[in-house]
Design a protein around this nucleic acid. Structure first.
Lengths: 200, 200, 200, 200
DNA sequence: GCTTAAGCGAGACGGTACGTCCGGTCTTAGA
DNA sequence: TCTAAGACCGGACGTACCGTCTCGCTTAAGC
């Protein structure tokens, strides 16, 4: 949470912070979110429990920090090409996302965070602003570019358009109602682009 | 779980079963899923804990039974008109669903079940087959009817089409990324119907 | 408890009664008194729990019946010779008792009953009248015979005399303060007979 | 259990320890040993259950500590005069013990501990070394003094001699086979001293 | 360079809930 | 009517974590 060089006289232990985040990530992969415990994280990180409680308000917050740290380190990069061919660009982007969501290292903590967000409005706020929004923005930008190029109806609400694209994807993944395949996202993109092209 | 007259010598207590389901529903509304406990349910239902453990494997299973019992009793009915105007019919259906998802009596247990499903693959299976699938079927049927009437491209994958409609809706509700309004679902339907109308 | 051939139209099941007593004896040998349960006895005897509760007021009562049945069957016979040599006769008797108390088949249920008696005054009454008293009587009789023969002071209280003999023995066994050996009982008899011979 | 200043980083709460011992003693007096529960002790002492489980292996161990604490505090002091008159000294000592064993405050926990010891060899070891042995030692010492004075046969086994004195006493009390009266102990002492005086 | 206050590891503490076991009662079906 | 079976309510078991609270120890800041 706190990143700046703390003004206090004695500073926060960087080593402990890192050990905690790593422990949280590895443990959530091993036992899942429900059975992830603060005590477990503290033990794995060889840290006193208080050191966790001092800096994070909940295990969801620890996990969010852990996950974004990894993401900031560039491990889960998500961007979108702009070749002028909207459908192709979106397919490429979503296919990359398919790979990510099928990767256990990504999936376990991300699902944990999604669950925490679904359970608790406060956790949701953090989750949205630090993970969902940035992810969405890439798509909003690409769609705006397409709209300016006339590939999309001028009046289309781009926020809803992105929901149209990512909502089915995320829902299928979260509820495990079907496989996340390239074929699925291709069909998805095809339908959505069709829908956006025509009429207000 | 067991509905039949049970072959065993001693039969299950119908009164306890009902008391447990009612207690579960009322408690989840009061304290939320995380703080819903088996002990709490047992106490509220004036039942021994063992009577719950004997018949259900988890609190998610209790809640699912409680919720579906209420649904089967007709409290949360969801069907779809077929006036010939696909967009209008879909809007009407989703608007009704908006009302449901904004109703705390529906929302609390349903969110709890969704969270349980997202956390646990086994819970997900039950959740899908007993709640999601039946809900989807109504839409698949209506879309098939539209496809036969030629309102939708012949080759369209109707399962994905329904995902396109309900995925964004559910995701927005679950993650609280935006308000569930009539306006939102109207826009949604508009875009989706557009997408389905044109070309495979 | 009830031994007579019940008058009712449908009579008590002799087979169940026996199965219960046997189950109680074997189980107390295997798991001890604390972990002996009515449910366990019922299961081992293939009997409904109610069949036990109907006929016995407590697990101690079951065990007492089980043990006395075995004793009545002559498995644990205790008598005392009367050769005229008091000390020798007593030694012989106590040596036989040493062997019994060192036999696990005897020891386990007897200790269980002693514990129940020590815990509970009601159980104690039964234990005393059905096991302790009969055992004591053999010694009282022998001592009376000795008293008539002039080997024991005329005024000696024979009840206390028997306590003097069996109290140390039982206490040592019950509390495991020392080994039950022939040597021990010989010393015991020696001291006691000395004490009884002299003075009022 | 631990009395020393404990080397560990966090130290044990003296207040909780005391509250637990007091709760155990008062509860065993009110409800008896069988119905004495760890939960009950914890509740009465306003302590978490874990705090009991952390420091004691069983309720018997708690009770033993509670009882010995009270004894160490001098509430149940037992010593023996040495006036030179062995019989008189022993009578005085046993009469004091009669009073103790007839005092409910002493009786309830002591009986509980005796029962636990009779049931379980491990509990017995503790009970013997912390209560029985110290109690016996007083008598062994007095008898040795008498032996040196020539009041007791030189070869007499003093351990058995003490058993002869206390065994009948304890047995009568434990099994409730008779009243614990001054008269009884006087008779007892008389017989035993007689037995010890004459011949090996 | 010494003081001092914070952060730290450790882990005890009062609690809550877990899932299991058993007590003693009650109900059902079959003999 | 008794029995085998076993569901039922109740309550204790011993365990796992919660979030809070000391303990001494280490360590860097600012005097």
């Amino acid at each position: 949470m706190t990143q700046k060089t703390a003004s206090g006289s004695t500073r926060r232990s960087e080593g402990s912070r890192r050990a905690i985040l790593e422990a949280a990530l590895s443990l959530v992969g091993e036992v899942g979110y429900e059975r992830l415990t603060i005590e477990g994280i503290a033990a794995r990180a060889k840290v006193g429990k208080q050191t966790i409680y001092r800096w994070w308000p909940s295990k969801a917050a620890v996990l969010l920090d852990a996950f974004t740290a990894k993401a900031d380190a560039g491990e889960f990069e998500s961007s979108l090409p702009d070749t002028g061919d909207l459908a192709a660009d979106l397919k490429r982007g979503l296919q990359a996302t398919v790979d990510e969501f099928n990767d256990p290292h990504f999936q376990a903590p991300y699902r944990a965070l999604a669950v925490a967000a679904a359970s608790d409005a406060v956790a949701a706020e953090q989750f949205i602003s630090r993970l969902l929004e940035p992810g969405n923005k890439v798509y909003v930008d690409r769609l705006r570019s397409a709209q300016e190029a006339g590939d999309i109806a001028a009046g289309a609400d781009l926020r809803v358009a992105v929901d149209l694209l990512l909502g089915p994807f995320t829902h299928r993944w979260l509820m495990r109602t079907g496989e996340l395949s390239y074929e699925f996202v291709d069909t998805l993109v095809h339908m959505v682009v069709n829908g956006l092209r025509h009429g207000a």
